[in-house]
């Protein structure tokens, strides 16, 4: 136990926790985006492709796993990852706020980016988005302008995004996600010490590529529904 405590009690240990949970969350974001893209596939067997995909997620691992069990395992891991990510972020932020009690009168940024300086606020916005997203499309608790039906993913998505306000919130959240990813992906490689002169120039490009791909793909869904391309 001493080892774990030693690691987590230090700032670097907390950053390692943020980076490792960050990898899990980036992986989830990419997987979720790829799943979402099935919105564009043609329907078959009288059912939208994305509805087949949703059912596939619930029956994943059968017969070893019971119906829906895989999803709950994935959710548990993600909730734990998000929780650790946020807890580490807050404890580090409290620390760094205390590290400079008197602010500078003049501040001139050089290498930091808007993305790097807004990580904590982007994170807060993303948490709000995640809560709303779950209430909107997972539980169907908040359904402005459409009737939610469990399992009817295509109908829920097209119905959900027909509300312009909701669609705009999703788009704003995805821009925030892209910024969070742009700094986060690079930062997590740095935190984990993934640093080598041969590959260093690729790290920021990788971060930028992931950020752009995720943002463009995910923003396309509400735009496609609003413009009538899908639905």
């Amino acid at each position: 136990m001493r080892r774990v405590l030693t690691l987590y009690s230090t700032t670097i240990g907390k950053k390692v926790v943020m980076a490792v949970t960050g990898i899990l969350l980036v992986g989830f974001v990419l997987g979720h985006m790829i799943g979402n893209l099935k919105l564009y596939l043609p329907a078959h067997d009288g059912m939208a492709a994305i509805d087949h995909y949703g059912e596939g997620l619930r029956s994943f691992g059968a017969p070893f796993l019971a119906h829906g069990q895989f999803l709950w395992i994935a959710r548990s891991v993600l909730i734990l990852a998000v929780g650790l990510h946020i807890w580490s972020a807050i404890s580090l932020k409290v620390r760094s706020n205390a590290a400079r009690p008197i602010a500078y009168k003049r501040v001139a940024y050089e290498d930091s980016t808007l993305a790097s300086r807004t990580m904590i606020w982007g994170g807060v916005l993303l948490l709000a988005f995640i809560v709303f997203h779950l209430l909107h499309f997972t539980t169907g608790t908040i359904t402005p302008g459409f009737d939610f039906e469990h399992g009817a993913v295509f109908a829920n998505v097209t119905g959900g995004f027909s509300n312009v306000g909701v669609a705009i919130f999703y788009i704003v959240a995805m821009v925030a996600l892209a910024m969070h990813l742009y700094h986060g992906v690079w930062s997590m490689l740095q935190t984990l010490g993934a640093n080598h002169p041969r590959y260093n120039s690729w790290r920021k490009k990788l971060a930028l590529a992931i950020a752009i791909i995720v943002a463009v793909a995910n923003i396309s869904f509400p735009v496609a529904v609003l413009t009538g391309l899908v639905g």
């Binding site: 700032t11 670097i12 907390k14 950053k15 580090l92 620390r95 760094s96 205390a98 590290a99 400079r100 940024y109 050089e110 290498d111 930091s112 980016t113 790097s116 300086r117 990580m119 700094h183 690079w186 930062s187 740095q190 935190t191």
Partner: peptide, 9 residues
């Protein structure tokens, strides 16, 4: 001291 958030400043 604070922690490193990889700003590069």
């Amino acid at each position: 001291f604070g922690h490193c958030t990889n700003h590069g400043e």
